[in-house]
């Protein structure tokens, strides 16, 4: 079994919680009302994509002499970082379509669930091993948004398609990004310990990502 298949199968093993929350979100009867909240949370996550990869790349660079894994991971990250740059602006564009000011979004305190999701990755990167981040990326880029599905959501709810630009663009680019990660994983000299850490990171990511979205569905928050 390839490294990527092994990680993808583990994710499939544990992703039911995330799938359930996703279904509750996209079939929510008040989706037009909660969609800006979803975008705010997506922005809070996506603004950390490049900084997280930069932190992991720096950790890889500093241990290249002693860790045979980090050179290959560094190559993957330095290739992928420019591809993810400024995607947070796409979410701000979508929020502007809905009448939400960019400055207001940037000034608002992000949800604790997002801080836990992203913050846990900084812990793994800085205090244990950056390979954990590949479990996080595998979850977030592992199920690219379907362009057809989200165009349908926009049309059926009356939300402008222009407010879905982030998801529609990712629907076009993430299949390649997913494949690039799989290719990189398959080329890396991963050990059993690396696999275990990526698995733990992926399971944690699934759980915390579900919390990020569940907050929107809970009317008491």
């Amino acid at each position: 079994m390839t490294h990527s298949r092994r990680l993808r199968d583990k994710i499939r093993l544990a992703r039911v919680e995330l799938d359930s929350v996703a279904t509750a979100l996209w079939t929510h009867p008040r989706l037009p009302e909660i969609y800006p909240q979803f975008l705010f949370r997506n922005h809070a996550v996506i603004r950390a994509s490049v900084p997280l990869m930069e932190a992991a790349a720096a950790a890889c660079q500093s241990s290249m002499d002693s860790d045979p894994l980090t050179a290959g991971m560094f190559r993957y990250l330095t290739h992928h970082i420019p591809e993810e740059a400024h995607h947070d602006d796409w979410v701000l564009d979508d929020l502007e379509v809905l009448g939400v000011d960019r400055g207001e979004v940037l000034a608002r305190i992000p949800p604790p669930a997002v801080a836990a999701l992203v913050g846990s990755q900084y812990y793994w990167i800085r205090h244990f091993h950056p390979v954990a981040l590949l479990g996080f990326i595998a979850v977030l880029e592992g199920t690219p948004p379907s362009v057809e599905y989200f165009e349908g959501i926009a049309d059926n709810t009356g939300i402008s398609r222009k407010a879905f630009s982030n998801l529609l663009r990712h629907g076009m680019i993430d299949p390649r990004h997913r494949d690039d990660l799989d290719y990189a994983l398959d080329e890396l000299p991963l050990t059993e310990d690396h696999h275990a850490l990526m698995g733990i990171s992926a399971f944690q990511t699934i759980h915390l990502l579900a919390r990020v979205v569940e907050d929107i569905l809970d009317p008491t928050l």
Binding site: E84, P144, V213
Partner: peptide, 14 residues
Amino acid sequence: RNVSGDHPPVGIVF
């Protein structure tokens, strides 16, 4: 495993 489109993606992207 082999059922595509059974659940929508959560949509939080990287």
